[in-house]
């Protein structure tokens, strides 16, 4: 089963990290990711740019409305995600705990993936 681990954190805080702090967090996360990759459980990993770079297309009307900024104005923002291959929720939670130790603060939302298409690029 594939799961998405959606990473939420207050981006005002992550944007306040100094370059050294940011590098240190990424290094710690990298160590966890490497372990996961070796075990064959790790799929795509993405870190998203700040929500100031986000654009939202509201399709609840016709024609859809394009608005600047993230979809939801929340205290914590979606800042990245992992796709992992696991046999059980418990296993995903263990992974999330490991990641959380490397990067405390915020929350992970774990969402089972219903369907996952490889892009033609990735498949070839």
């Amino acid at each position: 089963m594939q799961y998405a681990i959606l990473c939420y954190h207050d981006e005002k805080v992550t944007c306040a990290w100094s370059k050294e702090q940011d590098d240190a967090v990424m290094e710690k996360l990298g160590a966890v990711q490497e372990r996961l990759a070796r075990s064959g459980k790790l799929g795509p990993v993405a870190r998203l740019l700040p929500t100031t770079a986000a654009t939202t297309l509201r399709k609840d009307r016709d024609p859809p409305l394009v608005v600047d900024g993230p979809f939801a104005e929340t205290k914590e923002q979606l800042l990245g995600f992992y796709i992992v291959n696991c046999d059980s929720l418990e296993e995903v939670l263990d992974i999330a705990r490991d990641l959380g130790r490397a990067n405390p603060g915020g929350a992970y939302e774990i969402r089972p993936v219903g369907l996952f298409f490889d892009t033609p690029d990735a498949a070839s």
Partner: peptide, 14 residues
């Protein structure tokens, strides 16, 4: 949590 370096970033953000 013994590492308190996060406090600085939280305060800066707030």
């Amino acid at each position: 949590m013994t590492d308190t370096s996060w406090i600085g970033a939280v305060m800066t953000a707030a």
